[in-house]
Structures are given as structure tokens and as C-alpha cells.
Simulated scan of single mutants.
Amino acid sequence: MDLRQLVRDVPDFPKPGILFRDLTPLMRDPRSWQEVIRQLEEVCERLQPDLIVGIESRGFIVGMALATQVALGFVPVRKPGKLPGSVTGVDYALEYGTDRLEIISDALEGGPRVMVVDDLLATGGTAAACAELVEAAGGKLCGFGFVAELAALEGRRRLPEEHPVESLIIYT
């Protein structure tokens, strides 16, 4: 099954000159979405995580579906002020400014192996920050899983090279 056929190209979104890769048609098609999760399940089998961590917000969709399929727990990583109680956070640089990601402080208690998932790997800044956050919170990063990757943006280069990075659809 060619998953790429269900990804819609949206020119000039969110601003002129950007070609947005819209995964919502892929998510809307049950057979294709099942195939996405099946392929990510194969990644899980190789990486052997104890928990799935999903990055806000589309990483929640991918991560929770995958965690349910492989019978693992799911932990959300969110933007500031969205999680209750004590949190651990990390600030990271954006193209124009900074942002922050947070996780509940005891979410990775006991040092579980963690697979980070998201819908798209672009410049890699958010995924790299999430990797840093996982380790700061006591988890052991075992790799990454993405539905799609924009390889020309070289986001993979920003991720820790000792951990596998798996993308189901790669745009060159």
C-alpha cells in the first residue's frame, strides 16, 4: 500500500512558499491508518520500548493509536501550562525565538525505554527537544517513529545519532 498517495499537498500553507504535507486524508482512511499503525508496530518490535511518548499535538494521535495497538502505556509531551502537577521542562530554539516542552515529572519513573513518535519530522528541533526531555525526566530513549519526514530539511541530523529514526514516508 502506497501511503504517500493519501497525503495531500497544500501549497502556500501556512504561508506563501510552504508546501504543507497534510496527513488528515491518510488518517481518515481506516485501511491506510491501520497500515500506518502496523508499520509503526514493526518499528516498536525492533526498538522494544516500554512506553510511547507522543509530541503535542498530532503525536498524540499517532502515539495513542500505536500504544493501544502494542499494549504499552502512552505519555504526552506538551507545551507549557498544559499538564497538571509537577513537570519537567526543556526550552529549545525555533527559527525565530524559543519554545518549551514539558512532561509530568514522574511519568518516566524507573527509567523505562521510550520511543518518541510524531506525525512529521521536519527541521527536527521539537523532536530533539523531546529526546532531551525524555532523558531529563529519567527515561532511556530507544528511538523515534514518524509517519512522514521532509528529508530536505535535514531534521534527522538534529536527533541523537545513537538512536534509530524510522519514517514511513520520506519526501526528498
Rank of each mutant, 00 (worst) to 15 (best):
E109S: 15
L108S: 06
M115C: 14
V114R: 00
D118Q: 00
E95M: 09
V114T: 04
E102N: 05
M115F: 06
L120D: 02
R100P: 04
L121M: 04
P112G: 05
S105L: 05
P112R: 08
G124R: 05
L120P: 06
A107Q: 11
D99T: 05
L108R: 04
Y96M: 04
G97W: 06
S105C: 02
A107S: 15
P112E: 04
L101E: 03
T123R: 07
R113K: 15
M115N: 03
G97H: 12
D106N: 14
V116Q: 02
G110N: 14
L121E: 03
G111K: 13
D119K: 11
R113C: 08
D99F: 11
V116N: 03
V116E: 08
V117C: 07
R113G: 07
Y96N: 02
A122R: 09
D118G: 00
L121T: 00
D106G: 15
G125F: 12
M115K: 01
Y96H: 14
R100L: 03
E102G: 12
S105T: 14
V116L: 15
P112Y: 05
R113T: 06
P112S: 08
G111S: 14
G124W: 07
G125P: 14
D118S: 00
G125T: 11
T126Y: 06
L121C: 01
T98Y: 03
D119I: 13
S105H: 12
L108C: 09
Y96K: 10
E109W: 14
L108M: 04
R113H: 12
D106Q: 15
G124E: 01
L101A: 01
I103E: 00
D118L: 02
L108F: 13
L101M: 07
T126G: 03
M115R: 04
